[in-house]
Design a protein around this nucleic acid. Structure first.
Lengths: 119, 119
DNA sequence: AGCCGCTTTCACATTTTTTTCACCTGGCAA
DNA sequence: TTGCCAGGTGAAAAAAATGTGAAAGCGGCT
């Protein structure tokens, strides 16, 4: 092997999360994430495909309950989205489920989802 | 795990409601429902086949008694009907029982054997 | 002290959801 | 027929939730 710098590897489409390497990779690009960003991404990745409530994200990535009015989860979701977008243009990973939370899942940028119902 | 997993699964014909997954599916389509819509559908699904009074629907899905002149239940039943129709064409799920309430049950759209009429 | 990167908090913008209205329709009974 | 009642429907109004850019707060370092 070519010296993988970490043990655990979580794969979500073109995204790879390396908890122990303190980094994540999208395609061939390396994402430089801060501790909090990485932690959040890891927890989302471990629940990939499922809707994760803000509450849970706060508890698991911040180690505390989400206080009313606290927007930190949203702010960090944005930070991640920006970095993910830069590293993997054309992909969308973090989806919002209004009223519930966020869901990590690899999807192509535009919207081939005419199967869904909206307004 | 990669697939949306949840505990409880309520099946009503081609319709699947996943309360814990915060989602519902019709056939293979994922229904994009707002919080209230999902909640209403869940409660209807839990009482599938039975006529549920508006009163009860308001209490269980809105957490409050139905106020006189309040049409919110009707409005949401419509929202659900529209989304269900798009996701599962050819099926009718929410039936009106004039003077009594609504009933969730899977039926083919142009059903020739009208077993009974409301009221 | 002054600089830096990271985190938290704000204020405001935008989007989505929920509620409320006004009007329409069909059944039914006086 | 006419008037009423329950419900259907589309859309505006109101309320919430989320997106976003930036300022402020915090150590740790040089």
């Amino acid at each position: 092997m070519t010296v993988p710098a970490s043990d655990e590897v979580i794969k979500v489409g073109p995204l790879q999360v390396l908890p122990d390497g303190h980094m994540a990779m999208a395609g061939s690009h390396t994402l430089m994430l801060s501790g909090r960003e990485l932690h959040l991404l890891i927890e989302l990745a471990r629940r990939a495909g499922r809707i994760v409530e803000r509450d849970e994200l706060s508890r698991v990535a911040w180690g505390r309950d989400l206080r009313p009015g606290d927007r930190s989860v949203d702010v960090y979701v944005r930070k991640l989205r920006v970095k993910l977008e830069q590293a993997a243009p054309g992909w969308r990973f973090i989806h919002t489920h209004v009223g519930f939370g966020y869901r990590l899942a690899p999807e192509r940028s535009h919207d081939p989802n005419r199967a869904f119902t909206s307004r």
